[in-house]
Nucleic acid binder design. Structure first.
Lengths: 232, 232, 232, 232
DNA sequence: GATGAATGAGCATTCATTCAT
DNA sequence: TATGAATGAATGCTCATTCAT
């Protein structure tokens, strides 16, 4: 019944994600987005004040969703390691399911400090804070090493995850991203867990459950995980 | 009136680093670079075929230097952990000493996959390969966990380091980057080292030399390491 | 304020004719054409892909019209001499009525062989072919001398007509072009007609109707037909 | 012994002819001319004040030679028809021997009225005047039709000759230009000669000396004189 | 004289944004 | 609301010309 008023805004945002991912924000023309969305150029300005506002809108919209989802995952409880595990999985799944969006958020987030500071910053900070709280919780519980800066570790985890996802997107999705996410989690937990926690049952040992996994290591691995670079 | 410092090509490259870092590649005007370099607009085109070639030149030039330096560090020998330690330190020092360049390399490296694949790719791949070889060596020696994908770990390390450095640059260098680099190394070695290696003397235990450092963790730490986000 | 006369594309083409005639294609700036047309610079690019395409468009448009008109004149029938007479008259009238256009077509047609061959060539060839057919017809009927190359004669007629018109245009229209056209026709028919045809009634004897016209020749003539050169 | 001071000027002029013929005056770069001449860009400015002066110099130089040559031919005496015959032959030979120069003089002479009026005009006028005098002489002697404007006829002859030569140059010299020149002369004399002169022995009847020349006319002719247009 | 690196005015073209319909 | 033709400021790049060597 509703004449899909909201629909058009969504179509524009979706088109923007696709076009920005393809050509980059600066190379993308507003008319490209309009064509992709099936609306007139001018129509975009009924919903967004400018091309930059369109990017900001895109950011706000999706980051809110992502943060909400991550908060939900954290609220499910469990050990901090469990929570991190869920967050890593969610992040990877998100990138797999929305590669264009992942690319835009990842790449454009960095383009221009001005941009980032002006509006990407706040939301992005919220996102990092949610993760940081998990790390802090782990440190308070004595499960994570206390002498590490939670902030640094958090940002590092984000950087690592983000880089892996970007590499995966840019390489045209040529390898198993889920598995990479699990390895990442394993590495970070390995580095984070305190000796006591490590001795206990807390550790999430993803691939260690399989006895003598892949003893030969990298040779066979190559076919499983094609190099993130070497795109040619 | 005209500064005679250094070769004109170098002056242009240096100016490009500064201007691109300030405004981003797309927002920077060629005439901005020219003014910064103290040359006429046209002069830039005597050394670079286009604005894009200027960026490419900047990339080539500096990546080569960085890779050479890293290779030198690796050639100094020692355990893989030692090598990683030196690489992490060098990377951090590089970012500290060339924040503008670090920002440009980091940010523009991501802008547009086309871009990356065309010319950033090769050099960037070389860089990653050098690190990957350290990881592979560690795995072959049984010091690093064999079941992890060296490629994934390598890319994750780069992503983490890069993110930390970018955060530091963007936050106007408000905290001790060297220390963050050491923590990063500790986390990754913690996740990488095999149980046997961990038991031995191989582990680089950066902050563990100080007995129970900063048991209170984050509260006091906050003032030491201001948040990487929260730029205001 | 904005003149609504005619279609915008037409206005731009008309402006281009005027500006190109005044300053020549290469010296004319696109913004000159825009100002003359009363549109914004960018508007021109809604109708023509480039400055060069604007010239091509101008060519196509007018040559088509001219060729159609000449074809119509030929279709009216009569002896080949009659047809040539009509074509010569039409050409002269066209130059008189569209001096700017005549100048552009004439001058730019020659500028650069690349140019000519690429797009002026086809239409221009069509134009010449129409005339050549008249000459061939005359030769077949035995009215025109058969040993002459129809092609050479055709091209010579075009060159002569064109030169006369250009001289007239460049001299600021200072003399009677129609009369020059008639003389030209007379000269060419004099050279073309076969002895038999000349003896018959076929010859168009333009000024011979007037008994011993202007026996004194050039002295008095000078004031009637000011020199085509000597523009001052 | 002379260090060839004049030599360099000649080399530059020759290079300019070649380059201007290839790319046209406006598309040719001064550095193209310099490279072709084997001198530095700046050197050109030791001999010519500007790019335009270079063109003007080229014009002056060659037109003077041409005019002198034509004057010499006229001074050889004979009937006006003989003189015209020699002039036509010389013009054609000139184009055959200097196609690049012919193209430049022909094409650039027309590009831009400003150009022509400012400096090409005078020399070009001299050239035409020499021919006009032949025509006037013929009219005074009663050999050429008196009622025709000598000026118009002269300009027409030039236009026709010029057009034929240009077509020949542009078509990559694909046919016999000398023969076309002879036909042109024949046509013009045919149109010019007064009935009395025609009856006498004055007429130059180029191909009529050969009995029943080419009775079949144009069919076989096609292979002799490939079409001036139809470049493809 | 000769050079060619450097200059910077000039211009074609793009594209975010507007607004009459 | 929606349109898309029109706008015109903005900018990468060219190239004739200069001048220190």
């Amino acid at each position: 019944m509703r004449p899909r008023t909201g629909d058009k805004r969504e179509r524009i945002l979706a088109a923007a994600v696709k076009v920005f991912a393809e050509k980059g924000f600066y190379c993308a023309r507003v008319s490209d987005v309009a064509r992709e969305a099936g609306v007139a150029d001018g129509t975009i300005y009924l919903y967004f004040a400018s091309k930059e506002e369109l990017l900001r809108g895109l950011f706000e919209e999706h980051m809110r969703r992502i943060i909400d989802e991550v908060r939900g995952l954290v609220a499910e409880g469990g050990t901090p390691a469990d929570k991190l595990s869920r967050v890593f999985s969610a992040y990877v799944r998100f990138a797999e399911e929305n590669p264009d969006l992942a690319e835009v958020l990842t790449v454009e987030l960095r383009e221009s400090g001005k941009f980032m500071n002006e509006f990407a910053g706040p939301r992005f900070g919220d996102f990092l804070r949610v993760i940081e709280e998990i790390v802090l919780e782990g440190q308070e519980q004595g499960r994570f090493q206390r002498h590490l800066s939670a902030r640094t570790v958090t940002r590092a985890m984000f950087g690592a995850l983000d880089e892996i996802c970007l590499a995966w997107v840019m390489s045209k999705r040529k390898w198993n991203l889920k598995r990479s996410g699990k390895e990442l989690l394993e590495v970070f937990l390995g580095g984070l867990l305190s000796p006591e926690a490590r001795a206990g049952a807390d550790a999430v040992a993803p691939s260690q459950g399989e006895p003598s996994p892949r003893a030969a290591g990298h040779p066979s691995e190559t076919s499983v995980n094609p190099p993130p670079w070497r795109n040619a």
